[in-house]
């Protein structure tokens, strides 16, 4: 005999999906992210959670979908649950970070190779780019690093949130996101030179140019200060 299903049950049925968290099935509302669904199911998260907004890269998750051979990866805090999702979280990604002193190195291929010789092993399989939740062309920045095109590597890798998914998928065992950090820091330090006005201002402050002004401002009463505040001019050079 078929069980009668009430309208309410039907609606609930529609609004929930079944997901499998580390092998166990759970019914959860379909509107949740993977992260919220795990909490809904009863997990109190410690690992694999951080900003909850797609910025910190703590919540890397891998999953399969029902009837699909592909393995997917994404951020648990930014991905909606789907029916039949079979998932697990990656508590963290063990990856070697080279230690260096930025003052003593130069932006070049040999620097990249010295600290991350494994980049020479890149097979150009592109598994890394495919898995990247930030849609970064990871392989290309690894290759740019190898070619010494540090500027291009740095720009391309700018949006990296260091989730580590690329490193997990890499057959050549390259810690791409650390490579990216090195490239960005070299580029930011040696190619993107700060304007002279910065040094100028630092000098002025160190020489005490503004001390008198501060003394005066700080001696004002709240009322007087308010007047100054209201009267201040606005310079808005739209060139920014």
């Amino acid at each position: 005999m078929a069980k009668a299903i009430s309208m309410r049950e039907k609606k609930e049925e529609l609004d929930t999906v079944t997901i499998y968290i580390m092998g166990q099935g759970y019914k959860v509302p379909s509107s949740l992210t993977i992260m919220k669904a795990m909490e809904y199911a009863g997990f109190k998260l410690k690992r694999g959670v951080g900003c909850r907004a797609g910025f910190c890269g703590a919540c890397a998750t891998v999953y399969r979908k029902l009837g699909d051979y592909k393995i997917y990866a994404n951020l648990a805090c930014q991905t909606k649950v789907e029916d039949g999702m079979y998932l697990t979280q990656l508590p963290f990604v063990p990856a070697n970070k080279a230690e260096y002193n930025l003052d003593e190195i130069k932006p070049s291929a040999s620097t990249m190779l010295r600290f991350y010789p494994e980049i020479a092993r890149c097979l150009s399989c592109n598994a890394c780019s495919r898995v990247c939740p930030q849609d970064i062309q990871v392989m290309d920045y690894v290759q740019y690093s190898l070619q010494g095109q540090i500027d291009k590597a740095a720009e391309l890798a700018f949006d990296c949130i260091q989730c580590g998914l690329c490193a997990i998928r890499c057959p050549a065992e390259i810690p791409q996101y650390h490579v990216a950090t090195l490239a960005r820091r070299l580029h930011g330090r040696y190619h993107m030179i700060a304007p002279d006005t910065l040094e100028q201002r630092v000098k002025e402050i160190e020489e005490g140019k503004y001390e008198k002004g501060f003394e005066e401002l700080m001696s004002l009463s709240e009322e007087e200060l308010k007047k100054r505040y209201v009267a201040r001019d606005f310079i808005d050079q739209k060139k920014a």
Partner: peptide, 15 residues
Amino acid sequence: GPKIIKWHKELGLMY
């Protein structure tokens, strides 16, 4: 403020 930006540039920040 300016000192901090200067420090950050030494660290290689891409402002």
